[in-house]
Computed example of a mutant assay.
Amino acid sequence: MSTVNYKQRIKSLQSLIALVLLCIILSILTDKFFTADNGLNVLRQTAVNICIATGMTLVVLTAGIDLSVGSILAFCGAVAAGLLKNGIPIAATDTYIGFTVLGVILAAIIIGGVLGWFNGFVITKFNVPPFVATLAMLTIARGFTMLYTKGQPISNLGSKFNFIGSGSFFGIPVPVWIALVVVLFAVFITRQTRLGRYIYAIGGNETAAKFSGIKISNIKMIVYALAGAMAAIGGIIVTSRLDSAQPNAGNSYELDAIAAVVIGGTSLSGGRGTIWGTVMGAIIIGVLNNGLVLLNVSPFWQQVVKGGVILLAVVIDKIDKKD
């Protein structure tokens, strides 16, 4: 094996190597870490970030960013809870529209997709930088959440809905199965479809992609819509697990998602990265959070450590790009 191929092999495995080293260190520092129950707990907690980060990966591959996923998660979770518990009463006709669990799930995903699509529309039609457009949506969606919930949690959603976030199937938490479906869907898109090829082409060189006939605006709107829909799925899991839609749900979730994407090897410049790398990055973030909690590290220091890990990952990405 040549030196170049060896270095490329190491780079492709750096996330896995980092995860293994992190697990070894934490298992030495605390005997509570390397247990089956804690492992399942980490996977359950990581599932939400995997869903969000998977959508974020599609966005970042186009050289974009989405800061609104945490707020979209909160709003879609609140809508799902509200529709399930209260339905839609129409006073003018004295009628009531009720929703099943499947109905509220579909409604939440559609709303998330529409909000994400609107991000893409603003970015492409008005040439608004993704950072600015999605920052605005972060505030808008959070405001919608407060208006919809009136600043109060919507709780007691029923056992069927709770099963989504708290149940298990074949001994594996349901959120993990949901995250797996989301990941496999995204892997299929990126590896097996024309849309996936276009996503990488736009991130690699948008000008060249445009001259080759790719409809940049349409692809970006689809990508942001997918990111919004996947954030909505995360919102359903969070709301179900808590048995409550909290108005402040999803705060800073976008930072964990971006961290997972970067740690997983996806370039913030676009055009380079994989969904599986993001999954590995999300697991690293989940293990790190879990380990810091088990070690009784102050929440304030946890933020410092997480920020340092993100910075290190970005620096490594820049060094790799220069090479």
Rank of each mutant, 00 (worst) to 15 (best):
I97F: 11
T100C: 03
A63K: 11
S71A: 12
D66I: 07
I88P: 07
L73C: 11
V69W: 13
I72M: 06
L61G: 14
G98C: 14
V79Y: 11
G87F: 00
Y96A: 14
L73T: 08
I90T: 08
D66G: 11
T57P: 03
T62C: 15
A74C: 12
C76V: 09
V60Q: 03
G55T: 12
G82E: 04
K85Y: 10
A74P: 09
A74Q: 13
L67P: 00
L83P: 08
A81D: 02
I90E: 11
V101P: 06
A80T: 11
S68N: 04
D94N: 15
G70P: 05
L83C: 11
L83F: 01
I52C: 14
V60T: 13
F75S: 08
A74I: 07
A91D: 15
F75T: 06
I65A: 07
F99G: 09
C76G: 03
A53W: 10
V59Q: 05
L67S: 02
V79P: 10
S68E: 07
V69C: 08
T57Y: 07
T62G: 07
I97A: 09
G98R: 15
S71N: 02
G77A: 09
A53M: 09
N86A: 00
C51D: 12
G55W: 10
D66F: 06
G98K: 15
N86Y: 02
V101C: 08
T57F: 07
A78T: 06
L67D: 01
P89I: 14
G55L: 02
I52H: 12
V59T: 01
I72R: 10
T95L: 14
I88W: 08
S71G: 10
A81E: 04
A63G: 13
A81S: 07
N86D: 00
V79T: 09
T95Q: 13
Y96M: 15
L58S: 13
T62E: 09
A80L: 11
G98V: 05
L67H: 08
S71I: 09
A74N: 14
V60L: 02
G77N: 10
D94E: 15
V79S: 05
A78N: 08
G55E: 07
L73D: 12
C76N: 07
L84T: 05
V59H: 02
A78C: 05
I65K: 00
A53V: 12
V60E: 05
V79I: 10
G77Q: 04
I88N: 01
T62W: 11
I90W: 01
